[in-house]
């Protein structure tokens, strides 16, 4: 395994259901992502890209194959070890933001720190919310925010524990063009400033073109892999 690889996937298979209703979501994917790389995964709906991202993030398990994050095989981790590993190493950004409705913006952002038993680094927090233009919205509930603002909160939440890898599942899928551009710019800025590895799923070729590398997935297989231009 390359020492540069933060994420390495070997012969990954994922099958849902049994017998006649069996669906093969992933069929032997092998791929590696280097530290600090910004990778976009593209593919048609149902191609398996979300499943791949979920397995990379440890929130779903593969039927077969191995996933290494920073040299650790995550399918070997069970229970609390996996949870701790996930909250230390990985930050998630979801398509539909998935903010907790009963928490304010500030509480949503700081939730991963709280769950990890960490104190919130106030300076770092200030830097994030300033960069994401959320300083005026700290005490507001998610339902009072626009889609773009909610996605920025989700990004801030993914960053608060300074994870090495950020997994973004169609982060611009629910946003208009202007907000999409802003979110991508932010992710690029984070990638360059903090050196975090970003793996992003998208349908949008324009969004994908902002990445360092594009992985094309079709029918659960890696169809193409090329650098973005």
């Amino acid at each position: 395994m390359s020492t540069l690889s933060t994420v390495k996937v070997e012969n990954l298979h994922k099958t849902y259901g049994e017998g006649q209703v069996q669906t093969k979501a992933l069929q032997g994917i092998s791929v590696s992502v280097n530290k600090g790389e910004f990778v976009a995964i593209v593919g048609t709906s149902g191609s398996g890209k979300s499943t791949l991202l979920h397995i990379l993030g440890g929130i779903d398990s593969p039927t077969e194959g191995k996933v290494y994050i920073d040299g650790t095989e995550i399918s070997d981790l069970k229970g609390n070890d996996l949870i701790k590993f996930r909250r230390e190493k990985i930050g998630y950004i979801f398509q539909d933001f998935n903010l907790v409705p009963i928490l304010t913006v500030k509480e949503n952002i700081c939730l991963p720190a709280g769950l990890a038993g960490k104190k919130v680094d106030k300076d770092y927090y200030k830097r994030i919310i300033t960069a994401l233009e959320l300083t005026e919205k700290e005490d507001v509930y998610p339902n009072e925010l626009s889609g773009g603002q909610q996605q920025r909160v989700a990004i801030a939440r993914a960053l608060i524990n300074r994870p090495e890898i950020i997994l973004a599942d169609e982060p611009t899928g629910n946003l208009d063009k202007a907000n999409s551009n802003n979110v991508i710019k932010l992710l690029k800025k984070i990638n360059s400033e903090y050196g975090q590895t970003i793996i992003l799923i998208t349908h949008d070729q324009n969004v994908a073109s902002e990445a360092d590398r594009i992985l094309q997935i079709e029918d659960g297989r890696l169809a193409d892999e090329h650098n973005a231009y």
Partner: peptide
């Protein structure tokens, strides 16, 4: 979606001290 109706100030101390009880 179950959002509180009343406005409240964010309570980070409570959240980081015991997030489960806070939630």
């Amino acid at each position: 979606i179950q959002s509180p109706k009343k406005k409240r100030k964010s309570d980070i101390r409570g959240l980081t001290k015991n997030p489960v009880s806070f939630l």
